[in-house]
Amino acid sequence: MKKEIQLTIDGNTIQVPEGTTILKAAESIGIKIPTICYHDYCTANALCRICVVEIEGSRTLIPSCVAKVSSDMQVKTKSERVIKSRKTILEMLVSSIDLSESPEILNMIDEYEANPSRFPDAERREHAVIDDNPMFIRDYEKCILCWRCVQVCAEDAQYTFAINFSGRGYETQINTFYEKPLPETSCVFCGQCIGVCPTGALKPKREWLLQDGYQPEEIMLLTRTQRKKKTKSSARPSSGGSHE
């Protein structure tokens, strides 16, 4: 039986078991703290910092997804400082990445009144779609570096270790050994990474083709090679424009 810890969140004094995160403690009384990189079944790394909260006596804001409750903690989940930071982080994010398929983040941008053009002349992370296998595509222009794919490929689920990072800082990208195509890596095409990707950066090939206007029958007609090599228009059999 775990010890109960008493703390106050936004004026509500509650008791939760020792070891509970602030995020879960807040959730238990219906207070929703926004999250982006957090996933219930992946290791939390406190990367996005959207879930920060203000804790009395603390110099900086604290990421609620990893910080544990402690006795008599006074937590504010919507203080002015918290809201300002979330807003600025969202403005940074939207200045860098294609969020068109991330409705949850887009909603947050509305909710926090973040200005999508806050940073004019911002260099965006632009990458060509990587279409190197018949199963899924990698569109790193949409990647928010939440690390979930790397983690499920490694110790969080699959123990395959096909992907890691290249570069660092703003230039960081999810990558393979010497940037090889996935079929030349240890990837087993289990699809776990696609399952946890929150932004459409990883997408099943079929979904991608359907979005591009293909009919299911058309996709069936594509040969394996055509599916593999498909680029936006070239693989369409009717256009005869396969690269083969």
């Binding site: 911002a122 928010i144 800082g169 960081t172």
Partner: peptide, 16 residues
């Protein structure tokens, strides 16, 4: 140049 790129505010903020 030296940001590791782990957390968003530093990864993007130092660039901006």
């Amino acid at each position: 140049d030296e940001s590791c790129g782990k957390c968003y505010p530093c990864q993007i903020g130092t660039k901006r």
